[in-house]
Write a protein that binds this DNA or RNA. Structure first.
Length: 420
RNA sequence: GGAGACGUCGCAUAGUCCGGUCGAGUGCACCACCCUGCUAAGGUGGAGUCCCCUCCGGGGGACCGAGGGUUCAAAUCCCUCCGUCUCCGCCA
């Protein structure tokens, strides 16, 4: 939910944001009208209600002989109050509907446009060069007996897989490395629920235009989360936080589920795009004034991970039209994937400013009362990284060099040897 | 899955049977001031959240788990849902 006060006082800011996203500008005028109508309805209702409350007191105090007349009067008033109350409900619902469909205001400096209009902030690390024909991650994974797509498909269908042996260990190693870094940086680890209520899924902004990406369990009215961001944001819903001693930072470890609707035929080979994977997600609750600095901090954590793993990557500032509903700015870190001759997203970090917090009623105490906090999230480790690690560190004989930082999580293993 | 008990202002509770004097008492914790040489104790006052209007002094409305209903009037009566606890059953 955008700030209704901003909408009212500076609608041009909201319009500009919508324009940058390539979203509806008319929506802003609709929201303004709905807001005016809503407030008029509230004022009308409250005047009637005040009258009814006053009359109620007179009825209670009146002597018997006057009660009959007063009650008759109150009956008539009660009917009008009921009507007015209904109008308030309708107007509030209408406003919530239209205002709720406006995505977060994009931050100053975010490139306008769609998916291809991102701005590259920097490229880091040498792209690997091979004096042999490099194998893709699946070929490598199969030789290492680390990835079993065929059986994943047999058991669960397309885009499912088994991580086996060193593959399973490699994922855990990546995740543990991330967890240790998170702990060192003061993040509190949380293993989160992956099924959440509609209100939480709605509050985090995942039921907007991308609702068909989300698995739903209709019998139980629950959603499977595509990232622990959902549970991490819901964690403090309806709470007033104390951020006086600094941000609240969490590292959420969970399995993630995505329907990948509309991606038929894309990335069908290997584990690049799958229905289920594991992820360690950073999540910060901060004072809105500190949000941009925190965003840089999360990005630095991500880059630190990829650098340690010896991956070549670039950082992009995602264009407005490619931002999620809740994000005001998003940086993706994309690693070079040799066999695809392309950068592929390994991490994503979003500054949601106060948008999620407003929807989920997460506030902090300020000198003048309470105010929504800012929320930020970012990937710290995930299954997909196996792709870039295997491909980047492969050698001519099909073995894979293990980055130094992962060895302590793999019993000191320096090389992954092919088993077939 | 079955039976029962319960859900009130940060915490703990009173109020619910018998609807209006209850947005709501008490204790603890909290804040300000006062007082006793310090501490402990004591006294006085204050304090919740959300929303609307405002000549920015203030005025008004909503909120007793959530949502409906009955009624002139609901914390209080009725219904549905959610949650907690106890017992029984079942279960990876």
């Amino acid at each position: 939910m955008i700030d209704p006060q901003l909408l009212r006082e500076h609608p041009e800011v909201v319009r500009a944001s919508q324009r940058a996203r390539g979203a509806s500008v008319d929506l802003v005028d609709g929201a303004l009208a709905a807001d005016a109508e809503r407030r008029a309805a509230i004022t009308a209702f409250e005047a009637l209600r005040a009258e009814q409350n006053a009359l109620g007191k007179r009825v209670a105090a009146a002597p018997k002989e006057e009660k009959g007349a007063l009650v008759a009067q109150a009956q008539e008033l009660a009917a009008r109050v009921k009507e007015a109350s209904q109008r308030v409900n309708d107007a509030e619902a209408a406003f919530a509907e239209v205002a709720g469909s406006i995505p977060n205001i994009v931050l100053e400096g975010v490139p306008a446009g769609g998916e291809d209009d991102f701005v590259t902030i920097r490229e880091v690390g040498e792209r690997p060069a091979f004096d042999f024909e490099p194998l893709d991650h699946l070929a490598l994974g199969e030789r290492l007996d680390a990835i079993d797509m065929a059986r994943g498909t047999k058991v669960s269908g397309a885009r499912f897989y088994f991580l086996k042996g060193i593959g399973a260990r490699l994922e855990l190693a990546i995740m543990m490395l991330g967890l240790d870094r998170a702990l060192a940086a003061g993040f509190v680890p949380l293993i989160t629920p992956t099924l959440v209520k509609p209100s939480v899924m709605q509050g985090t902004g995942f039921l907007g235009e991308h609702a068909d990406e989300v698995y739903r369990l209709p019998d139980d009215d629950l959603y499977l989360t595509g990232t622990s961001e959902v549970a991490l944001a819901g964690y403090h819903a309806d709470e007033i936080l104390d951020l006086s001693s600094g941000p609240l930072r969490y590292a959420g470890w969970s399995t993630c589920y995505r329907r990948e609707a509309g991606s038929y035929g894309k990335d069908t080979r290997g584990i690049i795009r799958v229905h289920q994977f594991d992820k360690l997600e950073m999540f910060s609750y901060v004072d809105p004034a500190d949000a941009e600095a925190e965003h840089e901090r999360l990005l630095a954590m991500q880059e630190g991970m990829l650098q340690s793993l010896g991956l070549s990557y670039r950082v992009i500032d995602t264009a407005a039209g490619d931002l999620g509903t809740s994000a005001a700015r998003k940086f993706d870190v994309e690693a070079w994937v040799p066999t695809q001759n392309a950068y592929r997203e390994l991490t994503s970090t979003s500054n949601c400013t106060t948008f999620q917090a407003r929807r989920l009623a997460i506030r902090q105490r300020t000198a003048s009362g309470t105010a929504p906090v800012a929320t930020l999230n970012g990937t710290l480790a995930t299954t997909r990284w196996i792709v870039a690690i295997l491909e980047t560190h492969q050698r001519a004989d099909g073995s894979v060099h293990v980055p130094e930082v992962l060895r302590r999580y793999l019993g000191g293993l320096e090389v992954l040897e092919p088993v077939r």
